[in-house]
Nucleic acid binder design. Sequence first.
DNA 1: GGGAGGATCATACCAAGGTTTAGGTCCCAA
DNA 2: TTGGGACCTAAACCTTGGTATGATCCTCCC
Lengths: 219, 219
Amino acid sequence: MVTGRATSRSTSAGAEEPIVFVVDDDASVRGALSNLFRSVDLRTEVFASAHEFLQRKLPNVPSCLILDIRLPRLSGLDFQAELAKAGIHIPIIFMTGHGDIPMTVRAMKAGAVDFLTKPFRDQDMLDAVTTAIERDRNRRDEARVLANLRAALDTLTARERQIMALVTAGLMNKQVAAEIGVAEITVKIHRGQIMRKMGAKSLPDLVRMAQLLGIGPQT
Amino acid sequence: MVTGRATSRSTSAGAEEPIVFVVDDDASVRGALSNLFRSVDLRTEVFASAHEFLQRKLPNVPSCLILDIRLPRLSGLDFQAELAKAGIHIPIIFMTGHGDIPMTVRAMKAGAVDFLTKPFRDQDMLDAVTTAIERDRNRRDEARVLANLRAALDTLTARERQIMALVTAGLMNKQVAAEIGVAEITVKIHRGQIMRKMGAKSLPDLVRMAQLLGIGPQT
DNA sequence: GGGAGGATCATACCAAGGTTTAGGTCCCAA
DNA sequence: TTGGGACCTAAACCTTGGTATGATCCTCCC
């Protein structure tokens, strides 16, 4: 399973090596995990507190966070909530020595990848990390696509966005024209501009973009 | 939150009243839950074992299942796995007197709505049921849409399905024709037939259908 | 054998999509 | 004031999309 470093993926440019972040106030735990991950060639960074971790500017590579439920000043669960509120969606793996079921439920409901009780088997942790990294990789891929689409959408004028919505909803040019009270030729011209700006190679292409952008009939 | 019976929804024909199923070998628990749900006008059915529950032909209404982790003969977790394997996707709420964290994690990973430790507050259970019913309602809505689409897709011939994939991918008729080695007019005729059979009112419509059906570029 | 359904194609015709060229107005910022 | 961008439109022109009619060929099945 955990075969080692995510050897440079042939696609997208380099620097795709995943990172595992560990936050635990117990130095021995940090050391143990650090060793474990290094043993499988996983880049690792450890922190003694949530605050310390937040200082670190998060890199743009697949990563995950291993968190002790019981942290000084801020509980792991609260920290998880903080991150979510801040729009940071790094997958989290919890560890606990004295956790209980309600904590576990809360963490899992909030999207935690796993919730391990100490002591845990190395392999369980590695499996969880593999899952977490993979999840983050997928999330990042989707986020990148969406960001590009949104950037393209931002170059559209209000009129173009309006017409894009109507066109992708399935209206004919003449219907769009009637709907917004302009001549059909005007719609055609806007439409061409939309295809260019959005980089859509076909109408189905544009429809899928609109879909991802949440435009028109959500379905 | 739990305001009572899901009074006839204006859409789809009646019989939409949700049902809560309870499986627990402890008669007093069954009685207590039964009373609790009746007090908020929720239709309830209780069973003493997983086997008993399976005898019951599941009705076509939003429902959820409340399961004790510790069941005679078959653990709640294993039963959850059984149901999943059998393609039964009813949302599950677990109860436990002596559960542990790994159990909780496994249940939640497998999609459980909640995992309550006995004794729990009535309100917690009611909240969980509300969430579960709502989740099932959404799932059913999506499933119904998808079933209709699949039924329509089934009426397509192999050729039509092939052309549908290419058309929704964004190819022009002439490109489709070249791709499959027929005349453009043939593609046009098939295409018209596809629109009719699928009940698509426009190309964007068809594209969205293809998307839901997992046809073409998944994106 | 004969009919039904599927696939193919031609011809003809019309509707819809799309670009180019060439304007026009309005408004905002340099 | 001037320039540019957004928006609007017309005319001309070409490409695609889509339907109708009619026909051939094949296979499967009664």
